[in-house]
Write a protein that binds this DNA or RNA. Structure first.
Lengths: 357, 357
DNA sequence: GGGCAGAATGGTATCGATAACAATTCGAGG
DNA sequence: CCTCGAATTGTTATCGATACCATTCTGCCC
């Protein structure tokens, strides 16, 4: 049924040759290609008049600069690579947005990848990204495969690790201690009189920030002499809202007298709260619940959710700013390469001690 | 305070020259650069033995392929560009994930951009993307500036518009009618006996899908003879959870006898529900509320939220599949270029007619 | 044994822009 | 009128890989 002569077009609607080059624009205007190239950069010395003529021609012909050619000769790809565990998590997408915003008008473009919380996938992505010769790399967390570290090292470009404080930083760090943040939440709630603490999180293998929060929880409960913490692992990180609901049920079955449950993230906290309400329990009257991350949902939810606010967007912005600094070679006192970002406890209804509602 | 002789390193930890080229790998192994290049592609004819030796050398030297050079000579960038309105919205990040997944193992890499629901920003991004010479483009929606359309046309690459049915499609389409989907929801609820319908959405200028939903709502309420719909515009899209809460208050002040409120998205529906509960109203007892998009939150929330389920992830996968088809030049009967994706009403507690609770 | 197909490999031009340097123009100052 | 320098523009080589074609080397068949 196939017609042999039929043009094997893929598209080609109004599409003419489309293989327009700088040289052709140059010929059209009557200048050299080099001048056209200069006209595209604001710093270059081209007379205003010439630039105007060139840009008119560019417009008329529909020419679009080819950066892949440009980056080969200039040896600057114009890419920044960033890897986040998941883009569906609004904490990380806020960070991605921070990076994007910080990169605006720098001429740099973001290459974004998702690691799915897997170091192996991260390694693959790092290799894929490095093939594009990015000028800098932003990673989430501090756990990487050896090969990943070697590749990054070899690449000789600035690297920023975010969202936690790695034991052995590669280069720059923009983050905070997840363990201490969780510890602060425990202490704050303990000071309000809570005694029997439970914890809900995913299994520990993949999500390093999650396991840091967990260990911060356990350590602090111990330190405060509040007996062993009651910690439940439920599902592979990232733990969903639904799993949060299931986990709180298990936890309360096992330790019915638990007074307050801390969750690895607001999402699981939300799931837990909703499940409790569904079962006719009162939050915080019968059980108090807190999360981590201060997602939008937590201030809106009824009851609103106590949590730790983390500056997700700022992490992105600062990480990018860090890279830009490093790229500008502003050697000035490379100084400390660690930027600590703030976090704070946000007390809301879900742990309100008066809480009957 | 600056030391002039101080090496102006930017990083350079273990970083040696890092300017390793294929030719050097070739010399190291004792073959030509061409053979090394072939070794990197699975289709090429290189003896297994040679490839093995080359790959060992690559490993030993830490060489990483340079795709910017490769794409210049092969005239294939290996990029797919995708633009979504916002990445912080899980509907679109699901679509992005669908695209990413579909691209896995194709050797194609995703260039992702956020338009912030702005056609102007979209135009800028399209230009920025085209400078990388992507092999295909995936857009959200069908509203683009003229210049954007011209650039895309000129580029001569396949384009897929998603998430709606444009009046004048550029090329391929993978989406559904937002207006009809909303209409279906209205009819379904009307058949359950609801009569006085309200609607909450953002102002119409930017979010075309939002305004299609709104007009589907108004048209259907009219058609069913349910009097004029009570529609409130609140804030610039994307309307937040908080704005959903504020909007429902305005709506009920203005039309206190409203029975059911439909929202442009689950997020605003959630905000509306929480605000109602906060004010002591019962949902669905006093007021029924429905959303759009079937976000995770809607099945977890208490009450769970009636909504329209849209195959966000599938839209991404199919859009990418569409592109891959077009790229393979599988000319075979280019056929219809419109892929309709499904949607369905998901009835939940928030509109339960028996609903006292 | 000659010829030949097919696999494996090498040599060279080239992709489209930019770096580096050369050349030209123009005006001011001596 | 000549020289000099800043501003503007042009020329050529090059970035690092791949396309394309040529070459070498096997082994096999008549």
């Amino acid at each position: 049924m196939k017609n042999e002569d039929e043009p094997k077009d893929k598209r080609l609607k109004g599409g003419d040759a489309q293989k327009l080059t700088m040289a052709e624009v140059a010929k059209y205007v009557g200048v050299s290609a080099m001048t056209v190239s200069r006209a595209f950069r604001q710093d270059a010395s081209v007379s205003e008049e010439t630039r105007k003529r060139i840009m008119e021609a560019v417009d008329a012909l529909g020419y679009v600069l080819d950066l892949s050619a440009g980056s080969l000769s200039s040896r600057r790809s114009g890419f920044i690579a960033a890897l986040v565990p998941s883009i569906n998590n609004s904490n990380f997408s806020d960070t991605a947005r921070g990076i994007t915003d910080a990169l605006e008008n720098t001429g740099l473009q973001l290459l974004l990848g998702y690691t799915d919380y897997s170091a192996e996938k991260e390694e693959k992505l790092i290799e894929a990204m490095l093939r594009r010769r990015p000028e800098g790399v932003i990673l989430t967390g501090g756990s990487h495969t050896d090969r990943a570290r070697r590749m990054l090292d070899k690449a000789g470009i600035p690297v920023v690790e975010t969202w936690e404080i790695p034991e052995e930083p590669i280069n720059h760090v923009v983050g905070f201690s997840n363990s201490e943040a969780m510890s602060l939440l425990v202490r704050t709630l303990a000071s309000q009189g809570y005694r029997r603490f439970g914890y809900i999180g995913g299994t520990t293998a993949r999500d390093t920030r999650g396991s840091q929060r967990r260990s911060g929880f356990l350590k602090t409960v111990e330190e405060l002499g509040l007996g062993p913490g009651r910690a439940i692992s439920f599902g592979v990180p990232p733990i969903t809202m639904e799993q949060g609901g299931q986990a709180v049920v298990s936890l309360l079955e096992r330790w019915p007298d638990t007074e307050v449950v801390l969750c690895v993230s607001d999402l699981s906290a939300f799931g837990a709260i909703m499940e409790c309400k569904r079962r006719g329990m009162n939050v915080p009257g019968d059980i108090a619940i807190a999360g981590f991350g201060d997602y939008e949902i937590s201030s809106i939810c009824h009851p609103s959710i106590t949590t730790i606010n983390v500056d997700c967007y700022g992490i992105g912005r600062q990480a990018a700013a860090r890279l830009l600094d490093a790229l500008q070679g502003s050697g000035e006192a490379t100084g400390d390469e660690m930027t600590l970002t703030g976090y704070k406890v946000v007390l809301r209804e879900s742990t309100d001690r008066g809480g009957a509602r």
